[in-house]
């Protein structure tokens, strides 16, 4: 009788999430799941931000509302931070291992069938990460903002966008975000196994639309400051 020569060992870890983390496909699935969280956050963040066009009062009221319950605020922040950490660590780890998967580089490899966005996810991602750090120091903690006033969001934003550097950093980061979402929002369906030839074209259009909307939506604020629609 042909018995399996190799006795199967029981899994080393019982945790299912741990098993996912150990494997490349699982890690990608976790990146997709955390990607959904981060995307939803960014989307609602944009909706919140756009209230700036309703005047300083509205925006500052909205900010106070978010800070109404410190417990809730910190819970959400911790949750987002965890999602971000998983997303970033997994992404960096996978990227490093992919470099090991091709130790000798090609002299020439044509990548004409794929989008630039898809091939630069790690760079757009890292750029966004760097921006997030700056952004938090600028508008949440305030140390990077020369005229920071606690609780006066409208004022702080205008200070930031009053400087060319602030506008530039912000717009560049939002373009990176657009690129990241353009591929990421479709790719996450693929990573979770939810795409198929039937739905993929639709998903790709959706991802492109989302990327454009978010990039334009976020960028509209510094632009508005720059051309003077929003003023102190």
């Amino acid at each position: 009788m042909a018995t399996e020569a190799r006795p199967e060992q029981p899994p080393a870890r019982a945790s299912r999430l741990g098993l996912l983390w150990e494997s490349a496909i699982g890690k990608k699935a976790l990146m997709a799941a955390t990607g959904v969280v981060l995307f939803l956050y960014v989307f609602f963040h944009m909706l919140g931000n756009l209230q700036i066009f309703m005047g300083p009062g509205q925006l500052d009221r909205y900010a106070r509302l978010l800070h109404a319950s410190p417990q809730l605020l910190w819970t959400v922040r911790a949750f987002l931070l965890c999602a971000l950490a998983i997303h970033v660590v997994a992404g960096v780890q996978l990227d490093l291992s992919a470099r090991e998967a091709r130790p000798v580089r090609y002299q020439e490899l044509r990548s004409t069938h794929s989008s630039t966005a898809s091939r630069t996810m790690i760079w757009s991602g890292l750029l966004i990460l760097a921006f997030v750090v700056y952004h938090l120091l600028d508008l949440t903690v305030g140390v990077a903002n020369p005229g920071f006033r606690e609780g006066e969001v409208y004022h702080n934003v205008l200070v930031t966008f009053g400087r060319g550097v602030g506008v530039l950093a912000y717009v560049v980061a939002m373009v990176a975000l657009g690129f990241h979402l353009w591929h990421g929002v479709w790719s996450l369906f693929q990573s979770l196994g939810l795409s198929s030839r039937r739905v993929t074209p639709g998903l790709q259009r959706f991802a492109a639309a989302v990327a454009v909307i978010l990039t334009l939506g976020f960028s509209s604020i510094p632009m508005a400051v720059l051309i003077g629609i929003l003023r102190p």
Binding site: S97, E100, A101, S114
Partner: peptide, 15 residues
């Protein structure tokens, strides 16, 4: 075996 992960780029299916 040391293969990398998939980032849904699509070069594989194209070639």
């Amino acid at each position: 075996e040391g293969f990398g992960h998939c980032t849904s780029i699509g070069e594989c299916a194209a070639v």
